[in-house]
């Protein structure tokens, strides 16, 4: 039955719904780019969600832990092998995602007899020599979006992922209205946590817009009692070539 094109499209649609449902509870992740580097922030209850992929690349992911682990390993292996055979300079997020990760995800997603990856990812790469930072979100079907990176005249200084699309778009709306450039690290962490709270609030309230400042701060305080802030900095001024650093909050 799957051989019929209509059935195939239907099967893909079902699969999409199933995966979206599985991801729906995913706690948001925020990346903010600034003068001192890229800050990744989220609130975690039970497991680590932010990871180092290579010298200048970090990843945050929501979804099934087993799938996240496999994708994380793929990223580390591809970047590590490239960095060893050529050089660390030759490792790039754009190539990692467009040649390795995205085709892998698309393939698994569309092979409807096999299991798809239940994961949504956010990648960040520090720009070299004054180039803009690349922030990229990659979905379970292999589709990805970037902040523009070096291709854009005005790349957005943030990227977000969340369990639901509505929640992610509310976070983006909130961040577009918030001043991000020129902030200190603590101020950016604060903005990041507010954006996380916006995402967390709108996960359950589908029809709401961006919540008011009071709602945000009340909900944020309540949530931080239950979970721990997980934050990572890709340090633009790191003393060694490894830029990934966990921040103690």
């Amino acid at each position: 039955m799957i051989e019929e094109p209509y059935r195939w499209v239907e099967a893909i649609q079902n699969r999409r719904e199933y995966i979206e449902n599985q991801l729906a509870a995913g706690s948001p992740i925020v990346a903010l780019s600034g003068a001192d580097g890229i800050l990744l922030v989220t609130v975690s209850r039970e497991r680590q969600k932010l990871f180092e992929i290579y010298d200048r690349i970090a990843m945050g992911a929501i979804g099934h832990p087993g799938d996240i682990e496999r994708l994380r390993m793929t990223g580390i292996e591809v970047a590590g092998a490239e960095g060893f055979t050529r050089s660390a300079q030759d490792v790039s997020l754009r190539r990692l995602v467009s040649y390795s990760m995205s085709p892998l995800l698309k393939n698994a997603f569309e092979q409807i007899y096999g299991p798809p990856y239940l994961a949504r990812m956010l990648f960040a790469e520090l720009g070299r020599n004054g180039e803009p930072d690349l922030l990229l979100t990659l979905d379970y079907d292999g589709s990805y979006h970037t902040n523009g990176g070096a291709l854009s005249n005005a790349p957005e200084p943030f990227a977000v992922i969340s369990g639901k699309h509505h929640s992610a778009s509310m976070m983006s709306e909130f961040l577009r209205k918030t001043k991000i450039s020129g902030l200190s690290q603590d101020e950016r962490l604060n903005v990041g946590l507010d954006a996380w709270t916006v995402g967390h609030l709108t996960l359950t309230r589908e029809e709401d817009g961006v919540p008011s400042a009071e709602t945000i701060s009340a909900h944020r305080e309540e949530q931080l009692k239950q979970g721990a802030v997980e934050a990572v900095l890709l340090d633009r001024h790191a003393p060694s070539k490894i830029t990934y650093r966990s921040l103690k909050i």
Partner: peptide, 16 residues
Amino acid sequence: ARMLEHSFQFYRRSQL
């Protein structure tokens, strides 16, 4: 030396 450097980094990244 290069192999060692990459092995240690790879281990740290993959095994956390």
